[in-house]
């Protein structure tokens, strides 16, 4: 099978600034008609092409209603210290631009057996829940969303969700000292409730950790961890199978550098969670900067494997089985 997923040619229909940090992008199929149906929690990989540099591919959750496939919408939070993908989206992408996105892939899907869906979001982690709540509301599903953000001015879609779903939406402003009463929440749910978390890593660890301590079965706890690859120091690597030596730029991921050399490992999420691009390390002299959520801690320590979509390397030499 070819790497990644089937591609879709889309045209940017609208670019809407939401607040100081977040901008929303609307994509419509360039050929007209409808985009493929998707389920709440799905993401697409957006290809960002800029003259004079290799393409960047970042995953973004779809936040439009799964019931309306005339367009896909994503919300991009500007990351001033990232490797420039979000800045590119904010600064360069204009209505009318043609872009390529992947087919939707869902690695954070609802468990449709749930008697109730309890959702906890932090910051831009709200986006998959915007789609999931739309899907559930249409089916008469039972859900409740607890959403924390730094300030009222950055409360992306907080108003919109309250307008749509009223009391089922609970907002928590960090700057007002409002805190999610997690233990009370986790101990007062009806049997058959499923818990979903998406947000910054410390929040996910906190919620998932408390749920485990309070006796939640792990099958009922779902989280979405992925984030765009982070920049780092440049490094070189040798691809033993294809006999190539590659240079990984500061703003480039190892996976992107492998692809630029004409080698196509499989991928789906490009965010360190799906496991598709897992790569064996043949030898190395240096240290790994593992940023994925796929490999176990033991595997990270072993130095035998790396997830090239998000992880990096610093040192003298790195030889990969690619």
């Amino acid at each position: 099978m070819s790497a990644g997923t089937t591609k879709l040619d889309v045209t940017v229909a609208d670019v809407v600034p939401v607040n100081d940090l977040v901008t929303r992008f609307h994509f419509r199929p360039t050929a007209g008609g409808l985009l493929p149906t998707f389920s709440g929690g799905a993401h697409v990989v957006v290809e960002m092409r800029e003259a004079g540099r290799p393409p960047r591919l970042n995953p973004y959750s779809l936040m439009s209603s799964p019931l309306d496939t005339s367009e896909y919408t994503i919300s991009v939070r500007r990351d001033d210290v990232g490797r420039g993908g979000s800045l590119f989206m904010h600064r360069n992408v204009r209505p009318g631009d043609r872009m390529v996105v992947s087919y939707p892939v869902n690695l954070f899907s609802l468990d449709l057996r749930a008697k109730k869906h309890l959702m906890i979001a932090g910051g831009i982690g709200i986006t998959p829940f915007v789609a999931q709540t739309a899907q559930l509301a249409a089916e008469g599903g039972n859900f409740e969303l607890h959403y924390a953000c730094r300030t009222a001015s950055l409360f992306t879609y907080g108003d919109l969700l309250q307008e749509r779903y009223g009391k089922r939406i609970h907002l928590y402003h960090d700057d007002r000292g409002e805190k999610i009463m997690l233990d009370r929440l986790l101990t007062s749910q009806p049997l058959g409730t499923h818990l979903y978390v998406c947000g910054p890593a410390p929040m996910i660890n906190w919620v998932v950790g408390r749920a485990a301590e309070l006796g939640w079965p792990s099958e009922n706890v779902h989280f979405e961890h992925f984030s765009a690859p982070q920049p780092g120091l440049p490094f070189d690597a040798t691809l033993a199978v294809s006999g190539k030596t590659i240079h990984v730029g500061e703003q480039q991921s190892l996976l992107e550098a492998i692809e630029a050399a004409g080698v196509d490992p499989p991928y789906l999420c490009r965010g360190g969670v799906c496991g598709q691009c897992e790569t064996n390390v043949i030898s190395y002299d240096g240290k790994f900067l593992h940023n994925d959520h796929w490999l176990s801690e033991e595997e990270h320590r072993s130095g035998c494997k790396i997830m090239p979509c998000v992880s990096r390397f610093e040192g003298k030499s790195l030889v990969l089985e690619r």
Partner: peptide, 9 residues
């Protein structure tokens, strides 16, 4: 588990 929409097998 990784069969994707649009890519049947």
């Amino acid at each position: 588990l990784n069969v994707q929409q649009g890519q049947p097998a």
